[in-house]
């Protein structure tokens, strides 16, 4: 059995690889140098252990490069080294205590969900740069991300690795089809997760909640999309949202009246998606009347009809 714990073995492996010459280390060099690989019972077990360690390093952002000096060289003779630059931090990176406090809050928002550990360790790495003073004035605020959509995890991984994905998407009119696209960014807009993705040559927005199948990786990669192109698409969505206006009236002193500002029974709202707005309004029942657009009023009528039919 290996005589080092996984943490000790990974640490020693990293130090050995960092000290390696430019040509890297062969697998045999690594197995001979790192105590944690000594005494492993079989070659097969040793190979599996090394594969696990490579994967663990990659998951932490440490890329192991495989160096081949001869195209015909077999895998046994490949050499390994750490990718240049992984340990080089941007010189200008300097955070204030207030910014670290905000980052802690951003990390805490994951509240033990899937990215909580990554957020925590990310903040730890920033602190290890000597930025340890944290302004915790915001400690009484407890934001909690609701990210239980099964699609969030594979989408985030695909965005990180620039991998194409495929999933089934259903529009509010009930039409459904397979979408194969390049996922670019996940955003939270008006409390909804929105995926920004490039389908064919166009950047489009997809509501994560309307993904109705598993998100699968197609195995294909995609070329990086310029930040300017993503920024423009985001700005388009915001412009679109700000241009969509619904006019409503609320019953005086009702819950809807207070919910929509408590100042006037006449309300104007901007919205990103008419079906989502209809949901928010339906919750208030007869306390809200839609003045415009007519399509929103019609949508609400149809939704009520559906509820009556499904609960007959």
């Amino acid at each position: 059995m290996a005589s080092q714990s996984p943490a000790e073995r990974l640490f020693t492996l990293t130090c050995c690889l960092l000290a390696a010459p430019v040509v890297g280390l062969s697998k045999q060099d690594i197995f001979a140098s790192v105590m944690g690989y000594q005494g492993v019972e079989s070659t097969d077990a040793l190979e599996k252990l090394f594969d696990r360690d490579k994967k663990a390093l990659r998951s932490l952002g440490v890329q192991l490069e495989v160096v081949s000096f001869d195209a015909f060289e077999d895998a046994e003779n490949q050499r390994y080294r750490l990718a240049k630059g992984d340990f080089t931090w941007p010189k200008e990176l300097q955070l204030t205590p207030a910014q670290l406090g905000i980052l802690e809050l951003a990390g805490r928002a994951w509240n033990n969900q899937q990215f909580a550990q990554s957020a925590r360790s990310g903040i730890g790495r920033l602190k290890s740069r000597g930025m340890v003073e944290v302004d915790r004035q915001l400690s009484f605020i407890a934001p909690r991300i609701l990210a239980r959509h099964a699609a969030i995890e594979p989408l985030t991984t695909a965005i990180e690795n620039q991998e194409m994905v495929i999933f089934e998407y259903r529009k509010p009119d009930g039409s459904r089809r397979l979408r194969e696209l390049a996922p670019l960014k996940l955003r939270l807009i008006q409390g909804e997760w929105v995926l920004l993705a490039k389908e064919a040559s166009e950047i489009k927005n997809f509501l994560v909640r309307r993904i109705i199948s598993k998100v699968k990786n197609t195995g294909a990669g995609f070329a990086a999309v310029a930040k300017e192109e993503i920024d423009a698409a985001e700005a388009d969505l915001i412009d679109f949202t700000n241009s969509q206006v619904a006019r409503l009236t609320t019953a005086a002193d009702s819950e809807a009246f207070w919910h929509f500002g408590g100042e006037s029974t006449e309300v104007e709202l901007n919205y990103m998606d008419e079906a989502l707005l209809a949901e928010d309004l339906l919750e208030f029942g007869s306390e809200v009347t839609v003045i415009s657009p007519a399509s929103l009023a019609k949508r609400i009528e149809q939704a009520l009809e559906q509820v009556v039919i499904s609960h007959a």
Partner: peptide
């Protein structure tokens, strides 16, 4: 010291900030 933030760590913090 540690390597730069991994993609996953950056994503986790970026989404938290977005929130």
């Amino acid at each position: 010291g540690p390597p730069k933030l991994s993609n996953r760590q950056s994503s986790a913090l970026a989404i938290g900030l977005e929130y």
